[in-house]
Amino acid sequence: MVSGGILLDLVERVGGAVVGSIVEVPVAGADPAVIERWCERSGHRLLSVEGGTARILRGPVPDDEAILSSVPADRRPGARLWIYTNFDCNLACDYCCAKSSPQTERRAIGPELIERLVEEGVSSGVSEVFLTGGEPFLLPDLDQIVSACVKRAPTTLLTNGMLFRGRRLELLRSMPREGLALQISLDSATPDLHDRHRGRGTWQRALDGIRTAVAEGFRVRVAATVAADESGAAESAAFHRLLDEVRIDRDDQVIRPIAQRGFAEDGVALTVESLIPEVTVTADGVFWHPVAADHEDQLVTRDLFPLGDAIEEVQRRFADYRRETDAAAQRFTCA
């Protein structure tokens, strides 16, 4: 048979396979460039040619835009922009994914760069901004930062809520109520669990902070970070009862697992392949997700600008991971 026979095999085997499956075709002696070109023209993807066998992802292979649109708009990579305003913190929580503490170097980005980041982010599709740290209320210019963000996109400011006194209370009071939500951490309905991870007396001070912020007219979201063995139904019910009492909307009562990052020895393992990315900027670079903003394995680029390029890179990588995992799911079906 002349060289065309390989194309007949490709059309028959790949064309007859289920979309998204990986098809192995014997191609001994065939020119890999011909196989590659045929895949390109036919909308399939050549994965490898090894040992006389071609492995081909049966198309149509969804393009990046189709994959991104399969994620709800508010979670689509690039919709949320996280900014680590600083890394130092008044607390040293034992599970902190950013390894923040009073001894941690500040590594602040500063209001000017943050304003530019948000401006560029919004023009690249960012629809929501999250400011986190460290503890942002340690920054004397936090009001400028918040104001610059709120002008451009709905903004959430994450804080432990323990510093609302004196000058910092005035800082809080100067912030806009519209377009800004405060997210305050409180890990349990009673002091024990919260104080075990965050330090003695911190639960009461955080709860006081929540009451202060609510009284000042801010929208307050309360987030609990809990280990798997601490998140029983009774604990959850008590937690919700407490937050109902301090007038936190049910939609703003969030319980999430500890991430296995930073100081945490246990927790949910998070990788770039398993996380839907949420573009995260620190003074050191752009990262895949806020739970790993201090980790080289989730570094996207050291260049903060242009931010649009980093967002596009995150979206492109996410689409690649999705295509790979979809193909892997086809290989490992159990029934």
Partner: peptide, 16 residues
């Protein structure tokens, strides 16, 4: 459609 699926005009011109 089958002729097109083979990309025969480009990839099988030595044979067909």
């Amino acid at each position: 459609n089958t002729w097109k699926a083979l990309a025969a005009d480009e990839l099988m011109s030595d044979a067909l």
